[in-house]
Design a protein around this nucleic acid. Structure first.
Lengths: 309, 309
DNA sequence: TACTGACACAACGTCTGGTTGTGACATGCC
DNA sequence: GGCATGTCACAACCAGACGTTGTGTCAGTA
């Protein structure tokens, strides 16, 4: 199916005659006739009945028309999604399972009219920041490990998420029935977080956290997927794992896993929005305002932050 | 934007390399490369990064991919909407404001998966029946003015709607506060139904109805649209009009119009579903079953039917 | 170092899709 | 009736898009 033919069909359906369409599209009447004929041949049905005073739609034409319009709208959206200068706001969330993705979903609900593209660059802070600098993405969420004054000239960053943590344990774990736990309490228990590659920002964070409170956090180990991890935790009387409160899991009901807030102090994983100061995208302003308003709601409490927070 | 190029792009995004796509589409690797390059030039962005081991999507490619899929789905739907042999069930409702349209909306709600095309042929029974016979539409709703045995050979018809009537009056009309009215009561009042062209099946119906109960029904008169009619009725202390209970009006609240059921006997406008017996469309069976089940719910009461009912 | 397997570029042929020119047909005016 | 007018369709022609084959380049690998 040829989109130019479809476009011509819609124009002809609106105009009622081929001549006007030809003028509007800056082609000859014969070309319009040919396009329509080709489309009809392609579809295997007649779309117009031709008369000496113009054309009108057949029943098939009537049926096809709304679909044709939708097809052209889809084309326009597809084009706009990547066309430099007017594409949707493109935000990197690092992972679709963590807090930034959840927050963006809220943003989308709050501003359904704003076109949003959520992507996962699969890159560390530095690569993501380079992508922002290059304009590949409009913004990214990351823990920023350097002071603001050491950022590249055009890059701005503000802390927008203080991700709290929960302990995930199965029903047989000693802490299974605790309402909250403190980091100090966790020193007696083994915490298992497979899949954190050394050198990543998350691994660094949990290393520093472990050192600060004398915890035992196993960051390595084979990764069989989150479901396997959760199943193992649910079964075990010793194993526990930590997760951000906004982390999304496939969480089968049958597991009976407990999510216990970690408090006093609450270890915080601080994440910033990173963007280019000279990015003129109007939706970027809206996103920043939204994130600021969200952050204002955070209650006061005793927290623990990594040295770079 | 070329849909073949988009299709190739989606295939390449799935496959991860151009060679396989070429094989799958029965073209050469070079042709795939060209299509993608053309699409990239068209959009103004790079969609793939090429390596010696294949390709992977750029951020723009990631962004474009879901839109591309949607575009192809839209194309498939557009094609399926008219493609002979697998198009949606196409039903003529004569007018979108009357009972059949309402019923089809219910049908759609009951069977949201069944693709349905509601069209208005703008034709009388005979022309609509010819359309059914020709296969232009799969079914039509009409009052059938002849006995079943006089229908064309392949055509079937069953009564599926017994449309009841309501009297529409303004607050100053003598019957404004009646809970129901009988046809006999209406003999004393002028009923105004402009826009019923003589010779149409509706005009015939109201003529016969008027004769049966000694009513005064003005079928002619200038038509300024339904809103104008309703406004006039609402203002008047004499004028009233009849309408099917399922008729959809633009009904401004401010009018304070009263809808009063007509009973004892209830004049029925009988409508049939008309279809070709040898039409194999699976959704046709579903529609007939749905209409049969609806009809079974009709309660017993005293009714008046036109001679052809 | 040579081989393999990936994509890109170049040259060339076919066919799609445009143009111009003309024909068929209905309508309306004289 | 005859003719002008306006519609769309058909035919001939031509440019360019898009396919093919052949070859180049590059990275990973034996």
């Amino acid at each position: 199916m040829n989109l130019d033919a479809v476009r011509t069909f819609v124009a002809a359906a609106d105009a009622g005659q081929f001549q006007d369409v030809a003028a509007a599209l800056s082609i000859t009447q014969q070309a319009v006739s040919k396009r329509i004929a080709a489309l009809e041949k392609d579809l295997g049905v007649r779309l117009f009945t031709r008369t000496a005073r113009g054309t009108h739609l057949t029943v098939d034409g009537q049926t096809f028309l709304p679909h044709a319009r939708e097809l052209l709208r889809a084309e326009a959206r597809a084009d706009a999604s990547v066309r430099p200068g007017r594409r949707a706001l493109r935000v990197d969330v690092h992972s679709r399972r963590i807090a930034p993705a959840v927050l963006l979903q809220d943003f989308h609900r709050a501003h359904p009219r704003i076109e949003l593209d959520v992507v996962t660059l699969d890159a560390d802070v530095h690569a993501a920041m380079a992508a922002v600098e290059a304009g590949t993405v409009d913004a990214t969420f990351h823990a920023v490990p350097v002071a603001a004054r050491h950022l590249p000239a055009a890059i701005r960053a503000t802390r927008v998420i203080d991700e709290h943590h929960e302990l995930l344990v199965g029903p047989r774990h000693p802490l299974a029935n605790a309402r909250t736990v403190t980091p100090a309490q966790l020193a007696d228990h083994r915490i298992w977080m497979p899949g954190m590659a050394p050198g990543t920002e998350w691994a660094d964070y949990y290393d520093v956290l472990a050192a600060a409170f004398g915890l035992t956090i196993d960051l390595v180990g084979p990764v069989f997927g989150n479901e396997a991890l959760l199943a193992e935790i649910a079964e075990s009387a010793q194993l526990a794992t930590l997760a951000g409160v906004h982390t999304r899991y496939l969480w089968p009901d049958s597991y009976d896993l407990r999510r216990i807030p970690v408090r006093d102090p609450a270890p915080i994983y601080p994440m910033s929005l990173i963007w280019r100061d000279d990015n003129p995208h109007p939706a970027l302003r809206a996103l920043r305002d939204f994130l600021d308003s969200r952050r204002a709601q955070t209650p006061d409490e005793e927290v623990w932050l990594p040295p770079w927070g």
